[in-house]
Nucleic acid binder design. Structure first.
Ligand SMILES: [Mn+2]
Ligand SMILES: [Mn+2]
Ligand SMILES: [Zn+2]
Ligand SMILES: [Zn+2]
Lengths: 136, 136
DNA sequence: ATCCTACGATGGACTTCGTCCAAGTCAAGA
DNA sequence: TCTTGACTTGGACGAAGTCCATCGTAGGAT
């Protein structure tokens, strides 16, 4: 993420304090925050930032491919800045913690031709579920 | 699903016309309806059925393991009556069509020990994405 | 350094999806 | 047939997210 601001400027983004602080909040490993969590942390640095701006900025980052949306079951979407490193997710069924993982197989290849219904399969998402050490 | 009503009676369910019609709507292959779609189709047979009852019944069927909740990206949950046959999903990025598929690998085994972070991994969900023949 | 203006920020209304509740109804056992 | 507690209902409520009219400002032009 360290070069994110530079890439965004290169794409013609007007660099505002709001966008800067959202980008700063989305930094680190295993970061999978909800929009509200991003807003909370951004507001700690920039109290006047609005929810709408956080949603707008997250949506733009997703459209640019800089951030991934992680779908959850019945909960708020989570935003994942680790978009440059393809990975999958391990989710704790107890506390909801999300970790990035890298399985070794080729899941797309595991789908037989006769199971593809003529689709052009382009990507695969894998979610592992279980209990983390703290919740076990 | 044909024996669903029998199983539910065996579990002590009071058999109402509402529950019967919801169970009837959830019949067939590759069925992945939203709660609103279930309500719409149920109301075609039983006009007075309420949204609350559809949500209640779906929630009970999920709790009993008779129906699976399928998470979608930012849209309404989908309900999958094909719970007795373990499977994964192939989703069209164009029209949203969902098909049941059966990959051949062992995805859980593909997650190396050092990538498990001490979790007790119990299940894995795989979503294949691509364009269906109609959308390609 | 100042000006301009189109792009971005704001907050509040609105939508969608889902939950909750008090009151009324009815399935099924006695 | 009677009784009763499980089930249903409509509407209020809540959480997550979108939309929009208006205001503010980043950054190029002068
Ligand atoms: Mn991730
Ligand atoms: Mn299915
Ligand atoms: Zn946990
Ligand atoms: Zn399609």
């Amino acid at each position: 993420m360290s070069d994110l601001l530079g890439r965004l400027r290169g794409r013609g983004w007007r660099m505002t304090s709001q966008r800067r602080v959202v980008a700063e909040v989305l930094d680190g490993d295993h970061v999978h925050l909800t929009a509200d969590e991003v807003h909370l942390r951004a507001a700690a640095r920039l109290p006047e930032i609005s929810r709408a701006t956080v949603y707008n900025t997250l949506g733009e980052l997703v459209a640019l491919g800089e951030v991934l949306e992680v779908s959850t079951v019945g909960r708020a979407k989570r935003y994942d800045p680790n978009a440059r490193n393809p990975h999958q997710h391990l989710v704790c069924s107890g506390c909801g913690t999300v970790r990035d993982v890298h399985p070794v197989g080729n899941a797309i290849g595991d789908l037989p031709e006769e199971e593809r219904f003529g689709f052009a399969v382009g990507s695969v998402e894998i979610t592992y579920r279980g209990l983390c050490p703290g919740c076990a």
